[in-house]
Design a protein around this nucleic acid. Structure first.
Lengths: 131, 131
DNA sequence: TTTGCTTATGAGAACCATTCACAACTGTAA
DNA sequence: TTACAGTTGTGAATGGTTCTCATAAGCAAA
């Protein structure tokens, strides 16, 4: 747990350990307020400001990803090795991850044809469960 | 110009005419503040609140589209018949539209395989000009 | 064209997620 | 243990957007 902090070149504090633990356990995509609540359960001396501050640092270091889905605030997840995009259930708010090489390829192709190269992209499918 | 307002079932006011005119002329993707500035040049009695209010109504009526690109506020465009996605020049902020049936098809396929149907999607390519 | 009702408006307050300022605290390396 | 630079909690500030409310102005009917 402290390894990620050392790797990021920042001090290992109680607050950061708690937040990082909570982030590692989360398999949903919690927002800052939710992460704050969970971290506080482990280490009461965690303020919301520190949650935001630490998330920003960890994002810059590539440890977490920030997603600005439609409606509400940013949601976070620890970055695992493989890139993926998201399906969002418009009824439940649930997030499902998916990955498509074909789409990525097409994106690069389209950009190239217009004289651009893709720095990063955002692809979100807002979906409803089929009956 | 007033046709779209009547179609939307809302009153034809000086402010709305000005805003709609400005929107129709815009080939960039202006934000609310920029639209307010442009509309005020035509009709000084337009407040920012009315810009936001009217944009919301027009969006609900399908007359305009709202885009929440990364960084800064929402940006708007009049909806033309064909759906498209966006390339954003990360250096200049410029917006380029593109359209890919293949990608749309793949999206539907992916969703279907997971038991979902796509209600709407968001696809943005953050790009840099190739040298 | 006047009336009467209903919707729209401007100004500024309120909101919400996020960031900032600052004085107190605490890792960390020596 | 010390000493200092990095971190913290608190509460205030920010920025985009929405709300409140008293006033203004479309619009349909007379």
């Amino acid at each position: 747990m402290t390894a990620a902090l050392k790797k990021a070149g920042i001090r290992v504090t109680r607050q950061r350990i708690a937040l990082l633990g909570v982030l590692a356990d989360a398999d949903d995509h919690p927002d800052a307020v939710e992460l704050h609540a969970r971290a506080k359960a482990i280490e009461p001396s965690v303020s919301l400001a520190t949650v935001y501050r630490t998330l920003t640092v960890l994002e810059e270091e590539g440890v977490v990803h920030r997603h600005a889905f439609q409606g509400g605030g940013a949601r976070f997840e620890t970055s695992h090795e493989d890139h993926h995009d998201h399906i969002l259930d418009v009824d439940t708010g649930e997030v499902i991850e998916f990955q498509s090489d074909k789409i990525e390829q097409l994106q690069d192709e389209i950009a190239r044809e217009l004289g651009y190269e893709v720095v990063h992209h955002r692809l979100e499918l807002y979906c409803r469960k089929k009956r």
